[in-house]
Nucleic acid binder design. Structure first.
Lengths: 324, 324
DNA sequence: TCAAAAGTGTTATCCTTACACCCATGT
DNA sequence: ACATGGGTGTAAGGATAACACTTTTGA
């Protein structure tokens, strides 16, 4: 009547060190930023992170305190992202300590003040250039060419066909781009040896120079997870406003949505969807014109959380892409 | 130029014991089941769980091995759910060991064979009765009455109004039921002292007998998290089929969807949505009739993963509820 | 007066919802 | 024959996507 092995009842203390790790995201001047920390000179940047301490009353408090210590950046919205704990996270390093990392997504309104620390904001598309389609599909298509080259090389014809199909499915062909599958694309690029971390982790030379900057450990994988989550979430929760200043124009809001989603949006319909969503209201005053008619200032209606369960910013149709 | 505190660079070994914990879900005879383990006689049931060991190459492998050891139930689909690590997870117990649990959602096709172990399948609505609207809104409305009583008692008139509004928002009024907010409802019930765990954790008497069964530790909270996730996910990924046998009728599929979502669905449109989704195809043979015309057997088309990025079962409109 | 950006109106199309109805089997 | 569940057709309504157009500013 009881097959539970004896060890199961009182768990033995399997000592494991646990890290808290943050993907802190902001939008500045229409470009999406991620907050990084330079732990060693001439090393790839890290995400802010630190060990979970017994004094941390909750995981989130521990995370906030590490980020503020390391970057002086106060956090706004925070949500748990994923827990990474596979033994080969950083490749077959001989490190016996299992590195368990609880990763968080954090959003801030004011992506401003690096300065005093070794932390800095970077455009996240420096790390994942193929995720940015706003200026055309060029970077994506160059990536697909490299991936198809990898898929076709080595292995049986059967395997090559499967790999090619997988590239097509993951990176999309033609208009079939799913902007949420960021992690799957990163992992395929990693597997294909087209990101610097793959080289580092397995000591094999990449197929030519990688088209992007690397990060420490598996932090770029964590970043990809965060971007995918955020792209999905702005569609059904009003998290986009967590990235905006208190007052903004609809164009600025659209620019932020475009930064996150990596695509251009159709202006007229975006405006209509936002205005009819009831998420925003007019604020007094106008934006100073930057080369055209001045725009109404808008603000988020904080009551929405009380009125409606779970609204998001309906993003609307894509803008017809300019000739790539 | 470098404010990072020295301790941040090489994380000190903050020894923390890490558990893996599984919400294993199956559907049997149109009712949704969760797999439990009885660790002690006359104690509330637990979810299968065990400590993460250094030998576990990945978290998921560790989880699978614990579940199979404790329940002999092989797992199918598995995904990470959430990591629970707040110090007061189980109330202010004096336990100094921080209990960090990485919880997983697992789906199985054959919710059959308990037998040999101390494990058992339970209808998950035994633990969260207000989440089941298939037979009317009775249980929900009884819960709302209790919650409103709690909201009105104690504190200022201002606080009472806020609590009442929160109950209305979380549990919905009239047709405004959001079936995904399972965790928020459980947490409000906990806060109101209407679940047994609240009593246990803070030693205060509940307002009358709780309307549901309890579970060990915070396992009912983890169950609520899993149900919310699953309810959301069947709408955009084909996970519903992970709960079905290889061949099934559309009615059985609908019954499963209803079990998960806790609501009745509109038959004709459910069928049409499923059939037009391309997720299923006809299988040879018919189901043995159970009181009407025999139904076509259907099967999931496994190729869909290769063709389309991320289809889900469009659930369609609710069935007009029978007079409650 | 022209470029640039803000902002409005309207229409075709598709998807969702709802309703009505027919079909095949066991008792 | 009739109850029960399986299965199909179609029309109304609403949301979306696409298009054309006007307004207000700075240079």
């Amino acid at each position: 009547m009881n097959d539970i092995p004896p060890e199961a009842a009182p768990p033995p203390a399997s000592a494991i060190s646990v890290d808290l790790c943050a993907v802190v995201i902001g939008v500045e001047a229409g470009s999406p930023r991620v907050l990084t920390v330079q732990r060693q000179p001439h090393e790839p940047p890290s995400l802010p992170a630190g060990p979970l301490h017994p004094e941390h009353r909750t995981l989130e408090r521990g995370l906030r305190s590490w980020v503020e210590q390391q970057t002086r950046q106060p956090l706004g919205y925070v949500e748990q992202l994923y827990t990474f704990g596979d033994l080969d996270r950083f490749g077959q390093s001989g490190d016996a300590r299992r590195p368990l990392s609880v990763a968080y997504l954090a959003l801030v309104r004011d992506a401003q003040p690096p300065g005093v620390t070794a932390s800095a904001w970077h455009d996240w598309y420096d790390y994942l250039p193929w995720e940015d389609q706003r200026a055309g599909r060029g970077a994506l298509e160059r990536m697909i060419v490299r991936l198809q080259a990898w898929a076709g090389a080595g292995g049986s014809a059967q395997e090559a066909r499967q790999r090619r199909e997988r590239v097509r499915m993951t990176f999309g062909d033609g208009a079939d781009w799913d902007n949420e599958r960021v992690l799957e694309r990163y992992e395929l690029a990693y597997e294909a040896g087209l990101v610097a971390e793959a080289l580092r982790d397995r000591g094999a030379p990449p197929d030519g120079l990688p088209p992007s900057f690397g990060m420490a450990l598996d932090h770029r994988r964590i970043l990809a997870t965060a971007i995918g989550r955020l792209r999905a979430k702005i569609k059904y929760r009003p998290v986009l406003f967590e990235l905006m200043p208190p007052e903004f124009t609809l164009s600025e809001l659209q620019r932020a949505a475009e930064s996150i989603s990596g695509t251009l949006l159709h202006k007229q319909n975006f405006r209509r969807l936002v205005e009819s969503s009831g998420l925003v209201e007019e604020a007094p005053g106008m934006a100073k014109a930057t080369g055209g008619r001045p725009a109404r200032l808008m603000r988020f209606r904080p009551e929405v959380g009380l009125e409606r369960p779970a609204p998001g910013v309906r993003i609307g149709p894509l803008r017809r892409p300019a000739a790539s």
